[in-house]
Design a protein around this nucleic acid. Structure first.
Length: 548
RNA sequence: GACCCUAUCAUCUAAUGGUUAGGAUAUGGCCCUCUCAAGGCCAGUAUAUGGGUUCAAAUCCCGUUAGGGUCACCA
């Protein structure tokens, strides 16, 4: 390749390889330290699968004295969205996942292996690409996409592997004269790697999660530099992860079949490849009972923001994902109910290597309830307020103006240990839970107190109003309900009622139900005694009188 | 079509050649002197399929089937 061609291919001033390598010295980290990363495309959206992957990578790095960094893979200019980096960082920050290096919310960067945004590294990729062209490891390709489509069709018709390789790589062996001619004619070009792989050779891969695999070697002359001068994922991956000192690449299984290509490229560069860990993809059951990838278009929960918007406790989301990574998480949590979730020692040797878990809201909600049950009323209050301020401002105002009452409500049957109430999964549930405290219920359907009839309810209310006293303790409170029950022909005792149901109109449970409906508008509620205490004598009597 | 990954209760999974195949979620039942939630107790439900190897297979090997992934100037 003549210098003239190289200059036409890469007209811009580029740093030398030596200069570049000098700027990226090997990291000084303790023995065994892991450097890993999250490398999202800035599309304005963080997919839950990406988040899952990033979380796994972060755990791997931070549990191994290492570094976790964020790299913005914005080489697809068409998909790039303004403000997308902030979206990613906020999503991570919401869960306390903090990259040690990389782009920051304010647009700056931290870390000394940057820039961490690929579009700002154009010269670096080009310098390496130029070096490859110089050495004959890459070449310019002038084929149009139409040429390539046509070629693929021909290949498919003949039952051949489609792709740009071997004798189908038309531009692979252009002479210098032909290249020069094309360049002088201003024909658009891209740079392709000259693969030295043979499809008939098997190469063995040692994946951290999948174990030992064997695949055919890569023979495709894949594109390394696109028409716009930016690199493709593959090329950027090897250049960046080499320079940035990545020791472990954690990524989804969809990359598994590119590993032979990546290893080949590392070899052509003369670089040590990182260790790879390919995890199974999160899946979802569709309407037809079939598994599929969680889809951005079809599933709102594909966006990690969904969980913040809907008020899922951060820890619950993390716990759910950790549970998918290590099934032993549940045992650990059981044994350590009060330890922060980030203290869970994720075991990489035990990361489940299955077909890919179905994202299960039922299970997530169960974890949510446990997480919320472990919190104090104050914590639930402030988390709920926090959420409401962002997503339900009206509700937030109510929470603030009734903070003492709300905390008291949240404290009903909340205790340390496993006996805590578990009816809240997420902050969004709190509003419904609190509804009857803010306003007296309006009972429109008299059938709610069946088997009682309205006259019974009136009588019960009248009798009970005479007895109710805010200062009663719980036993006294219940004794009074029993008293009203007896006086009105209801069994004061469940056992009596069960023994001779025909002797009574009903039981003390029915009496309590009448009171419960009058006070809360519902047939089910937390401990009625505590609810009445919180509402206070005046409000209780007012609500009871509404039926009289 | 080629290549690759995966296959245990409904779901997430444990059991790395010897277990009555374990747990969690979900479901059903019972108990808990007011409902619900929680909790306790109990129950049912699984090694895709066909061949091997072995004294012994969920586990190792091969085939079949099924699901997933990849085969872009997207990542």
């Amino acid at each position: 390749m003549t210098p003239e061609i190289l200059d036409l291919l890469f007209p811009n001033e580029l740093p030398t390889i030596k200069e570049i390598e000098k700027k990226y010295p090997p990291r000084k980290l303790p023995e065994g330290a892991v450097v890993s990363r999250l490398a999202p495309s800035p599309t304005g959206y963080l997919h839950i699968g990406n988040f899952y992957q990033g979380f796994m990578a972060e755990r791997l790095a931070h549990q191994n004295k290492g570094v976790f960094f964020l790299r913005v893979e914005d080489t697809d200019q068409a998909r790039k969205v303004e403000g997308a980096v902030e979206v990613v960082l906020r999503a991570l920050g919401h869960y306390g996942i903090m990259p040690d290096e990389g782009a920051q919310i304010d647009g700056s960067e931290c870390g000394s292996y940057g820039p961490y945004t690929q579009s700002l590294r154009k010269e670096i990729y080009q310098a390496y690409a130029k070096e490859w062209v110089k050495k004959g490891l890459a070449y310019p390709c002038f084929c149009s996409s139409e040429d390539i489509d046509l070629m693929r069709k021909v290949q498919e018709k003949q039952g051949l592997r489609p792709g740009y390789y071997g004798r189908y790589a038309k531009c692979r062996d252009l002479s210098d004269e032909q290249i020069l001619e094309n360049l002088k004619a201003k024909k658009p070009f891209i740079i392709r790697m000259r693969s030295n792989g043979d499809y008939n050779n098997r190469i063995v891969i040692e994946d951290l999660l999948k174990g030992k695999l064997s695949m055919p070697d890569n023979e495709m002359d894949i594109v390394i530099i696109k028409k716009d001068g930016l690199p493709t994922y593959h090329f950027a991956h090897i250049v960046d992860d080499h320079l940035m000192g990545t020791t472990n690449v954690v990524r989804g299984e969809e990359w598994l079949s590119s590993v032979p290509l990546h290893l080949q490229m590392f070899k052509m560069m003369g670089w040590q490849p990182p260790k790879y860990a390919h995890h199974a993809l999160l899946q979802k059951m569709d309407e037809n009972g079939k598994r599929r990838k969680i889809s951005k278009r079809l599933d709102p929960e594909a966006n990690i923001e969904y969980f913040a918007q809907n008020g899922y406790p951060q820890d619950a989301v993390l716990e759910y994902l950790l549970n998918l990574m290590n099934a032993s998480f549940e045992d650990w949590r059981k044994a350590n109910p009060t330890i922060p979730v980030m203290d869970f020692p994720l075991n990489f040797k035990k990361i489940s290597n299955t077909a890919g878990a179905l994202f299960d809201f039922v299970k997530l909600h169960s974890i949510c309830r446990d997480v919320v049950a472990r919190m104090t009323a104050d914590e639930v209050y402030s988390e709920t307020l926090n959420w409401a301020k962002q997503f339900k401002p009206e509700f937030a105002k109510k929470l603030e103006s009734h903070s003492e009452m709300v905390k008291a409500v949240l404290n009903i049957e909340r205790g340390i240990g496993p006996k805590s109430r578990k009816d809240l999964s997420k902050w969004a549930d709190v509003e419904n839970e609190l509804s009857y405290y803010f306003e007296a219920p309006v009972i429109t359907d008299a059938s709610v107190w069946a088997p009682l009839i309205e006259s019974d309810v009136k009588k019960i209310a009248v009798d009970y109003i005479k007895l109710y006293n805010d200062d009663d303790d719980k036993n006294m409170w219940f004794d009074k309900i029993k008293q009203v029950a007896s006086e009105n022909g209801f069994a004061a005792n469940m056992k009596d009622y069960k023994a001779n149901p025909s002797d009574y109109k009903g039981s003390v449970a029915d009496v309590a139900k009448a009171l419960r409906v009058l006070i809360t508008g519902r047939t089910q509620s937390p401990d009625l005694y505590q609810i009445m205490k919180i509402l206070g004598q005046k409000e209780v009597l007012k609500r009871l009188s509404s039926v009289v």
